[in-house]
Design a protein around this nucleic acid. Sequence first.
DNA 1: GAAAGGTTAAACTAAATGGTTAAAAAAATG
DNA 2: CATTTTTTTAACCATTTAGTTTAACCTTTC
Lengths: 213, 213
Amino acid sequence: MVKKMIHTSDKEQLILQAAMDVFIEKGRHGAKMQEIADHAGINKALLHYYYRSKEKLYSKIFEFLIWHNMSDLLSLLDSDLSFPEYLRTFIWNYTDLLKENPKIPLFILKELSEGGDTVQTVLKNLVESGKFDTSKALKVIQRGMDQGEIVRMDPLQVVATIVGSCLFYFISEPIFKTLFVDEASFDRERFIQERKESIYQLLSYGLIPRGDQ
Amino acid sequence: MVKKMIHTSDKEQLILQAAMDVFIEKGRHGAKMQEIADHAGINKALLHYYYRSKEKLYSKIFEFLIWHNMSDLLSLLDSDLSFPEYLRTFIWNYTDLLKENPKIPLFILKELSEGGDTVQTVLKNLVESGKFDTSKALKVIQRGMDQGEIVRMDPLQVVATIVGSCLFYFISEPIFKTLFVDEASFDRERFIQERKESIYQLLSYGLIPRGDQ
DNA sequence: GAAAGGTTAAACTAAATGGTTAAAAAAATG
DNA sequence: CATTTTTTTAACCATTTAGTTTAACCTTTC
């Protein structure tokens, strides 16, 4: 379900994968060491043999997930594209990423809402070490404005709207379906494909019809 | 922090309020009965005297929060406005609601990610009892399209984009700030005010400049 | 002021769970 | 084969926590 982590020994790898699945599924507190062991097909003793404590295991996985969930998107910003191309590529890549790992964002947000020292620590490390240079995103938007490709607006607001638009469906999927969708006739795959196009359309041209095109 | 619930006896009310605060803050599993009792200024025995179990307490609060978080927004759809007015009003109302209760959405989403039988049950009840008529939202959008006020697009996609845009900042606030914002010079209040205007602008007119206005 | 019900304190049970331990068994290694 | 490392088993400890119980105390009400 999720890409491989840096590989070490076989069992170690197996444990990490199992832990990741269980943590994502059940959350930090919902996840039990016994369940992780079961899921990895080993016993609890061995689990502790490799990873001293639940906390250690958790933050290792947390760090990996944040990285895995963001690095591709940020590296996109190094390419040399027009703003519309950037926007389109971001929406496509991010939506695909979410489609394949729909539970990760909520997992991260959950951690966040529980005080989230782990998150903040991991994040700050990534930002301060320069691995996450988010200012690139703002610069890309700024440049788009300077070159007249897009209207002037606080780049932060643009970021929030783009990311929020992409993210929403995936974090709210069960609620969204219950509220709005007739399960029987709903084609998830197709909706997600349309989602990309719709977001791009909407953010580019807006809901109000244009006179000029 | 959160509006009063339907009032019963004094202590009962006090307990509900305390439970709500603690559950929102710590989540279903993070919340402890002892802490709720402390928070309400009573002891655990009395807590169980009024509410037999944690589960009962939890789902009572959960139901209230879903209702509280959505009913205002849905009732808006009964008024007779042009689509731009609807859009504007929704963005303003919803953002204000989120500003005052920023932890509720994440609380709900969290429940959701943990299997969330409680959510689904509560939601389905609300939908099937007719208290939540979400089709009204889709109809308002449809009408806007039929009258040429907005471009044609799957109404579901429109909903997802609008709600996602409003919601994102509030559920990701700590992460968002860490990644993008210089805490020292950041004015939250102002950002949120601007947020409304930006979302409205962006969804109405898009990022690509218009030739005609 | 007596009865009823609300409230407290404190000790208790039972279950879940993170983590440990020690000894044996199995697998890998040289 | 001898040694080291990995893995299992199974019992065990300590802690947390939901929920109970009992006896006493306070407050209201008739």
